[in-house]
Design a protein around this nucleic acid. Structure first.
Lengths: 151, 151
DNA sequence: AAAAATTATTTTGAGTTAGTAATTATCGAG
DNA sequence: CTCGATAATTACTAACTCAAAATAATTTTT
C-alpha cells in the first residue's frame, strides 16, 4: 500500500490520498470489529443486524443487494443469526416466493446496544475534527464516493 | 449504517461523516476487488503480494503484523501464493527459526502489472478532486486516522 | 553445560464465509 | 394453462479465520 516508488506527481498525490483514506477507514474498522467480536458476532452477521435495525423488514434479495453478497452466502448467514435468535424469517402472502427477514425483540435489543456503542465510538473518534472540518471532510468524501460509482 | 434515528446534533454529524468515509472507501474497495479477481487472486493473497512488492523480503511474522492476521492464517495464504508461483520462502542462516518470504520473478511481474493498474485507477477516481482538495482531504484523513490509533 | 523460557513457524481442528450451479416453488404474461 | 422469469434454498467446493498444540531453534538462567 505504501507508495515507495515514484510514478509522477499527480499519481503520487492520488496514491498518498488514497493511502490516508485507507488507513483512516481501517483504523476505524478495526476498532469497530473489536466491539462486534465482544457481542459474539462476525462482520457479515453484524452487517445484517445493522441493515435490519436501520431499514426494518427486508426481503432476502434486498439484503443481498445491500450487502453485496450472493444468495447462497446470505442464506447461511441468515441461518446463523437465526440460530442465535436475533433474526426471523417471515413469509409474505402477497408473493409466496419472497421471504422477509426482520429482527426479533432480542435482535432489536442487541442492535440498540451495539449501535449506541457504535455511535458513541464514532463521536469519540470524530471529535478530533471540529464541526466545520467534519462538514468539509464529508463534502470531499461524498464527491469522491459519487464519482467512483459513476465509473 | 444509515443514521435514520436522531441521536443529537453532534452524534448525527459524526455518524454522517463516518458514513461518507465508509461509502467512499467501500466504493473504491469494490473496484479494487474487481481487478484483484481478474488476476485470479483473493484479497489476502493480493495483500501479501502488495506488501512484498513494496517492502521487499519480510519474515512471516512481520507479514502477520503488517496484515494483522495470525500465523496460522498466514501459513495457508503463503502456501497458496507459493503454489501459484508468485512467492517463495527463503531460509535465514542467522536465525534458523525465521523464514523470509519474497516475490519470485513471476511475482514481481504480476506486482508491477497489478500495481500499475491500481495506481492508474486511483488517479482516475481521485481526479474528481483537484490537487488542493486532495491535499486538504489527505490532511483531514491523516488527522482522523492518527487520533483513532491513540485510543 | 544443562534446564527452562522464549521465539518463529507450522500443523491441526472447528467454524464462517464466499461463489456457482442445480433445485423447488411461485408468479405473471400470453 | 403453460412457459419463462423470479425468489430463495440446497449442495458443493474452496478459502480464510482463529485458537491451541506441536516442532524446532535460540536465548536466558542456574
Amino acid at each position: 500500500m505504501k507508495p515507495t516508488k515514484k510514478y509522477g506527481k499527480k499519481i503520487d498525490l492520488a496514491l498518498s490520498t488514497w493511502l490516508k483514506l485507507y488507513r483512516a477507514f481501517n483504523s476505524f474498522n478495526k476498532k469497530s470489529n473489536e466491539s462486534i467480536k465482544t457481542f459474539g458476532l462476525t462482520q457479515p452477521q453484524f452487517a445484517v443486524i445493522e441493515a435490519l435495525g436501520h431499514l426494518g423488514k427486508l426481503k432476502v434479495g434486498e439484503l443481498c443487494d445491500k450487502l453485496m453478497v450472493t444468495g447462497g452466502s446470505m442464506t447461511l448467514v441468515l441461518d446463523n443469526v437465526t440460530k442465535l435468535g436475533y433474526v426471523e424469517r417471515i413469509f409474505d402472502n402477497q408473493d409466496r416466493r419472497a421471504i422477509y427477514v426482520q429482527l426479533t425483540p432480542k435482535g432489536k435489543i442487541l442492535f440498540d446496544k451495539i449501535f449506541k456503542n457504535h455511535a458513541e465510538n464514532i463521536l469519540k473518534y470524530m471529535s478530533v475534527l471540529n464541526q466545520e472540518e467534519q462538514i468539509l471532510l464529508g463534502e470531499l468524501l461524498k464527491k469522491l464516493g459519487k464519482s467512483i460509482n459513476k465509473i
